[in-house]
Amino acid sequence: MKIVVLIKQVPDTAEERHLEPDTGRVDRGASDPVIDEITERALELALTIKDGDKSTEVVVATMGPAGAAKSIRKALSMGADTGIHVLDDSLAGADLVLTARALAAMLREAGADLVIAGNASTDGWAGMLPAMVAEHLGLPLLGSLVSAEIGGDKVTGTRQNESGTQEVSASYPAMITVTERFAEARFPNFKGIMGAKRKPVETLSASDLALTAEVRSRVLDVAQRPARAAGRTITDDGNGAAELVDFLASRRLI
């Protein structure tokens, strides 16, 4: 089985993040870049399958600037076999539409049996990209799973929401997205770090993918988040509960 895991390099979620006022894009130089935590969990799922079946090939793929190569190398040090880097200056600031087209074109060339991605990225939280990619490729999508079982002829999983759970399945080729309910990613060991330097990474440009880059969306304005106003103190002189209810109701919080 060949599994392609879509990873994304994002600003460290443990640090404060900022937008560039001129472009409206995330200021990726303001904090250390890391692999998005949810896509790391997607990679862990693929590596777990590889642990049980050594014939499984795990490919990590991303679209991003030159610095994203570090995230690919880290994924390789964790146990992935090869990497794919979609790298082209014309794709800088790509919106969801262009990003989905680029990743779909890359995946057509990769020829995966299973594509695994995170259900959303921590720098955008759009949560729509996997569905858009699956639509381009005509693949069944099992989205926002809390558990998954990759079998010989199909993938099955459980999706959970406020109404209950739903059991879903699809034959290969297919695409699934995982949530934070999946296991945390393993740490690379010294052998993995050294071996990652010799593993191949394919770099693809927009022209390699027969892709015409056209960003159709742009940010028109960026404003600083207003400072938080001081709260209101309610002194309980016998009517505290009623005042609290009135306060919450006036703000439509109850």
Rank of each mutant, 00 (worst) to 15 (best):
A131N: 05
L107D: 01
E162A: 08
I7G: 04
N119L: 09
E109G: 07
T62H: 06
A105G: 08
G164Y: 13
M106N: 03
S77L: 04
V26T: 13
L220S: 10
V219Q: 12
R232I: 01
G138P: 02
P200V: 05
V115N: 00
L141H: 06
I35E: 07
S90K: 11
G195R: 05
D88N: 07
L103Q: 08
L211D: 02
K197L: 10
G118W: 04
P140V: 04
L248I: 06
R17K: 13
Y172A: 07
K191D: 01
M175Y: 06
K191M: 02
V245E: 09
R186W: 14
P21L: 15
S207T: 14
G151V: 03
V155E: 10
D95F: 04
A134I: 06
L76G: 00
V58I: 14
E40R: 12
S55M: 13
T235G: 01
R181E: 08
M194C: 02
T235M: 03
M194P: 01
F182V: 07
A148V: 03
A249R: 15
A75V: 08
V97T: 14
R159W: 07
A183I: 11
G29A: 11
G240H: 07
I234V: 12
V26C: 08
L114K: 03
A102V: 09
D12N: 09
L96M: 13
A227D: 15
L253Y: 12
V97H: 15
R228P: 02
V155L: 08
R28A: 07
L253A: 12
T177V: 02
